Amino acid sequence: MTERQARPGAATPTRRQALLQTAGALAVFSCGSSVQAQAGYPAKPVHFVVGYPAGGAVDIVGRTVGQAMSTVLGQPVIVDNKPGAGSNIAIKSVIDSPADGYNLLVAANALAANMALYQPAPFDAERDLAPVGLIGRVPVVLAVNPTAGIDSLAQLLKTAKDKPGSVNYATPGNGSTPHLAVELFERAAGVQLAHVPYRGGGPAITDVVGGQLPMVAVNALEAVAQVRAGRLKVLAVMSAKRSSLFPEAPTLAESGFAGFEASVWYGLLAPAATPKPVLAQLNAALQKALAQKDVRDKLSAAGGEVEPGSAEAFATLLHTERARYDKAIRAGNIKPD
């Protein structure tokens, strides 16, 4: 056999070319199938997992945004309420779900706080979840019983400084967003208040309205009915700017605490390994939903303000809030209920 003769079974140039062409075709097919699969998303209903009971603030936000996004995505958005363990049950269920864009988490501040509040940490939100986008914020408010003898924030601060620990305040619970907001405020103001945790904002408000305690810290949505009825008076809102629900109430920043901000925020997240094209599609659908007037009106009526933006901006907020809450929880030795 000469050098030019082909060995038995050896690939001739023609055969080699055929093999290369086949491999190339398979690669193109594989890539095309992946792109086609992502382009076909969503092909079935999308689930919004909410770690709180139906009818609460997070549930209202999830249903409002979900209904608008279903129109954009062309598939139903189903809200699944999975309350319990400070929303950890819902969070972990999404983390453990397939990373295909069909199970998303509607989260609030507990997502950032629970990593320090619960030990050992039940999850790492920045590692285990991929932000889709921020939805909006609702301010935390400091409200008093009008008969409590505390008519202004200045009077509250004077009383607290003259008699540290003499002013009791109610919150929805240990480690709740309003509780952590007041902890941050106490350090900023150099005062000491006495925390009385409840199991939910409703019972906390009921006891303040009934005169058992002088003050409550809750999100604006929970307080609005009692404020409008004259049974509560808002001393201050903790948001960066005044609330449309309580335009007469000053912010803490206006009251001498420049830069102070503590709001209940809401955002949408997916399992960490969700394909980037799916995350981009979800963010685009979220932005379209938040641009709708009826969505903005519904969230405004609930005391919130829409905050559209990128997934990267939401990731930055989550990281910042995690560090801030971690510091507050450790400094206050706060334990979950």
Rank of each mutant, 00 (worst) to 15 (best):
L105G: 13
V61I: 14
Y118T: 03
V61L: 04
F48W: 09
G66D: 06
G74V: 05
A112N: 15
A110G: 15
Q67D: 09
L26P: 01
G74Y: 08
V49G: 14
V28S: 11
S33F: 01
L20D: 03
A68V: 00
T22K: 03
V58G: 01
S93R: 11
V61F: 07
V58F: 00
G133T: 14
A99E: 11
G62E: 02
K92A: 10
P53A: 05
L117K: 01
G101W: 08
G62D: 04
L104K: 11
T64R: 03
M115W: 02
N114I: 12
P83H: 11
I89Q: 07
P53Y: 10
V106A: 15
D59P: 00
A125Q: 15
H47K: 11
K82E: 05
A54I: 09
A23I: 07
K82R: 14
N109K: 05
P45H: 12
A90F: 14
D59I: 04
M115H: 05
P98I: 10
A25H: 02
D59C: 06
Y118F: 13
D100H: 11
R63S: 07
I78D: 08
A27F: 02
A39Y: 07
S97P: 05
A27N: 00
Y41I: 08
P98H: 09
Q21P: 00
P76W: 03
Q75M: 08
N81A: 13
L105V: 07
N114Y: 11
A121M: 08
V132C: 15
A85M: 07
S87H: 07
P53M: 13
P53C: 07
A125Y: 11
V50G: 13
T22A: 06
P76E: 03
F123K: 14
G66S: 03
L117F: 01
L19K: 05
I91Y: 08
L26I: 10
S93E: 11
S30A: 13
E126N: 15
P98M: 08
